[in-house]
Design a protein around this nucleic acid. Structure first.
Lengths: 140, 140
DNA sequence: TTCCTTGCAAATCGTTTGCATAATG
DNA sequence: CATTATGCAAACGATTTGCAAGGAA
């Protein structure tokens, strides 16, 4: 399976690299369309999946049913706002202690763990004088 | 929002209580259908959502894009097999240390965290012999 | 010229919802 | 009786896929 460069894929990578939040496929689509008005959603999905498969980006599944994508593939934790759904990086050292602990007495191979934190982001706290009914599908 | 008992809902709860794995809506549907041949998938979804909302069961989102449901609402960790997709309980004490650590220096409210472990379950290890890392998101 | 990539549209998958009818309290 | 729950089917949103045409090596 040999890769051939494409301007669309380059543009998708470039856009992702420019953002510190973690855009969804649709956000990527809307933005890349400004440089490539004819690009299709399918192409965006195909490239995001491909880039994730070869390890150039990370696919984030944070429980809202929508995939988010992160240009930063180094291990770090994420925070998900239950009100607005925004995803951001957390400044918290990554520890493998829990994974190690989980291996104890488990008959099977534990390769890793997924952890994300949820709550209310700063912006939503400040807005919250007015009550927002919009809840995301995160466990309470 | 008053509840009225229904045989279908009882049956769904009963089925869920009988399983230590964490069935999807479809699995619940297929099984409950043996007692209620006319039950619809919609009813199963409606009841699972309702039960999760009132806290009688837990909705599990483990990154496979399919919701799993757990009759056990007490806090505990889960293991997801990357090969067969099965979800099982882990015998690992729940700690809030990570959540506490995450709150440090974060401008926003962290309410909790979601953690699950992944790898290969015992059954899949025995079936797969030597070929190990091949199935893991690598391009074909 | 090979075969990877694209745009487009249709298809898929899990889940939700509108509606008329049935069941519950 | 006033509501809530159901079965059915259609609608939904996110993602994938088949195909013919375009583009890179």
């Amino acid at each position: 399976m040999n890769l051939k460069r494409s301007k669309q894929r380059d543009s998708i990578k470039e856009f992702l690299a420019s953002r510190k939040d973690h855009p969804t496929a649709d956000i990527v689509y809307m933005n890349v369309r400004q440089s490539f008005p004819n690009i299709s959603l399918g192409t965006v999905y195909r490239n995001l999946t491909l880039l994730a498969d070869i390890g150039e980006i990370t696919r984030l599944r944070v429980g809202d049913g929508i995939d988010h994508f992160d240009y930063d593939t180094s291990p770090h934790y994420h925070f998900v706002c239950s009100m607005c759904g925004s995803v951001s990086d957390l400044n918290l050292p990554v520890s493998s202690k829990m994974t190690e602990a989980a291996k104890e007495g488990f008959e099977g191979e534990i390769e890793g763990q997924v952890t994300y934190f949820y709550g209310r982001c700063n912006k939503c706290i400040q807005k919250s004088g007015c009550q927002s009914a919009l809840q995301h599908g995160l466990p309470d």
